[in-house]
Design a protein around this nucleic acid. Sequence first.
DNA 1: ACAATACGTAACTATTGAAGTTACTAGATT
DNA 2: AATCTAGTAACTTCAATAGTTACGTATTGT
Lengths: 132, 132
Amino acid sequence: MKRNSRLSLALHTLGHMAREPDRVRTSADIADHAGTNPVVVRRVLGRLRKAGLLAAEKGHAGGWRLARSPQEITLADVYVALEESMVATPGNEAQPDCSVEHALHQKVASVLEDIERSLIEKLSATTIAEVR
Amino acid sequence: MKRNSRLSLALHTLGHMAREPDRVRTSADIADHAGTNPVVVRRVLGRLRKAGLLAAEKGHAGGWRLARSPQEITLADVYVALEESMVATPGNEAQPDCSVEHALHQKVASVLEDIERSLIEKLSATTIAEVR
DNA sequence: ACAATACGTAACTATTGAAGTTACTAGATT
DNA sequence: AATCTAGTAACTTCAATAGTTACGTATTGT
């Protein structure tokens, strides 16, 4: 895996789970299929668990499964659960000294907030059960 | 400067130029004000030059100036000139083996393309002369 | 003519963030 | 008790970007 593939990994895994909701999958199985590492899988899916999208069981016959029906999990749920803003506002300083920079930062940040909302709205139109 | 600050640097500089279009600025001046390096400034502004937004002159009294009126340069022009897609599609493989992954990739890519268009549209509503 | 100035660019280093890895703990099942 | 699985901390690897050094090219002032 390369860069910013957390969303990919999460969606990919949930996509499979949506097709076979009853099958419990181990981190190792998932990592194998996705070409990555069980620890990375746990890190990513752990966020989805905290967001209430997935449940995990330990021990024999343990593993990951959907915490609710795939029809009730939208792509936006996954995106938001990962807390990754794809449209992160550029630059570094929150409060730039320069007034010109400040004004531009405000303007761009406002546009990006709109866009982020719009992105989430679009993603919420599709559930993981629909895409296949 | 930290990360993905090219857009910040570009807008910041153009913002100042919009206020004093007649003043020619050297890379060193700009770098000083922005807290970065002349070479970095040239790299970033060079893209804007290639996009026809800026002009650069060498030699004594040389430096950077707007290639056209600040009222005719929108934030979208700058964004596009930098060829940075803030909403880059995640994941690595363009053609994933797995059909589930493929379907999800398609869906997400399509949403992100919409969002990218929408972002450019919003940015094109503001010129560098307006923000101050 | 020539020195000084400024952009253009290649090549390298430093820094940062994410992925990958190792190692260990805690809980569940056989 | 042994085994299997998630949870997590600590570390390493890798990639992308910013920063730096060095040098070339063009222009201008003396």
